[in-house]
Design a protein around this nucleic acid. Sequence first.
DNA 1: ATAGTTATTGCAAGAACTTGCAATAAGGAT
DNA 2: ATCCTTATTGCAAGTTCTTGCAATAACTAT
Lengths: 140, 140
Amino acid sequence: MTCTSEYVPQLRARGFRMTSQRLAILHVLRHAGTHLSPSEIYRQAKRDYPGLTEPTVYRTLELLSDIALVRPSYNSSGHLTYEIAGNDHHHIICKQCGSEIEVEHTLLESLYRLLETTSGYRSIGSHVTFFGVCPQCQTS
Amino acid sequence: MTCTSEYVPQLRARGFRMTSQRLAILHVLRHAGTHLSPSEIYRQAKRDYPGLTEPTVYRTLELLSDIALVRPSYNSSGHLTYEIAGNDHHHIICKQCGSEIEVEHTLLESLYRLLETTSGYRSIGSHVTFFGVCPQCQTS
DNA sequence: ATAGTTATTGCAAGAACTTGCAATAAGGAT
DNA sequence: ATCCTTATTGCAAGTTCTTGCAATAACTAT
Ligand SMILES: [Mn+2]
Ligand SMILES: [Mn+2]
Ligand SMILES: [Zn+2]
Ligand SMILES: [Zn+2]
C-alpha cells in the first residue's frame, strides 16, 4: 500500500487536497514509525521536497491530527511530537530519566467506557501519556 | 494559611529558596484556582513584582511542577497551562468546541493500579487530559 | 550584624511556533 | 487540453518559549 493510494482518498473524503508537501510529510512519518518533532519532520521531509517551509509543516501536522491520520503526543520535556496513526496505544514516561514504554489500549478500555457513561462525552481519544517513575529510577 | 508559610518549608525541604518572584507566581496561581497560561501568569504576577521577567516565569513553573506544587496540563489548543496543586482530578476536553469537564481521580484509581502492576512504573501521575466529543457536539 | 556561598535572576540572543495575506496549484468542470 | 474555483502554500513578521552567562540576593555560618 503506497502513501498516495492510501492517503489521497482519506483526504478527499473530507474535502482536502493531496499536495507534494503533505505527501512528503506523511511519507516521513510512515517510514519513521516513531514519534517525531516538527523540526525533525521538517528536516527529513525537506529532502523529498526542498521547497518545503516550516509553517507548512506545522499546519499540515495539525490538519493530519484533526483527520486522525497522525497522532499528536507530548514527550518527556513537554513538547509536541507526532506519529503515524496505527494500532491504538498509550505511553508511560519516567519523570526522572525520560524512559518511555507503550501500553496496550485494551488496558484502558473499561476506563473509557466508564468515562463515557459518567461524562456523556463520546469517542474519548487514544494516545494518552502518563507520567511515573520507572523501575530503574525507583531503586536509586 | 498564607502562601509564605505554606510554601517556604516545601521549597526549603528540597534545597530551594523562596524568592519574591516565586511567591508572586504562587500567589497568582493559588488565587486563580484554574489553569493559567505562562503569559497570563506573567501578566498578573508582574503586578505584585514589576521586575519579573518571562524567562523567570517559565523556569519557575517548571521547578514548581517538578516539586509538585503546581500541575501542568494542556489546553484544547495543545498549549501548556498550570494550576495550583490540590485535589486530584483529570480533564476531558471536547475536540470540537473545546468545552472542558473535570473527572474525579477515584474513577482512574483501578486503572492506575493496573498500570503499575503491568508496567512496573510507580506513582503514575495525576492530571491527565482526555479528548472526546461533548454531548452538545454529538448532536450536530 | 557581616561576610561567604551559591541558587536564582535578568539580560540578550536565539530557537520554536504562529498568523495574515498575496501568490500558487490541486481538483473539478467545460 | 484549458479554464475556474478556492484550498494550500510561501513569505515575512510577530509571538512564545529557551538558553548561556554575568549580576544579584537568599540563606548559612560566624
Ligand atoms: Mn505513541
Ligand atoms: Mn486541572
Ligand atoms: Zn526512569
Ligand atoms: Zn463540544
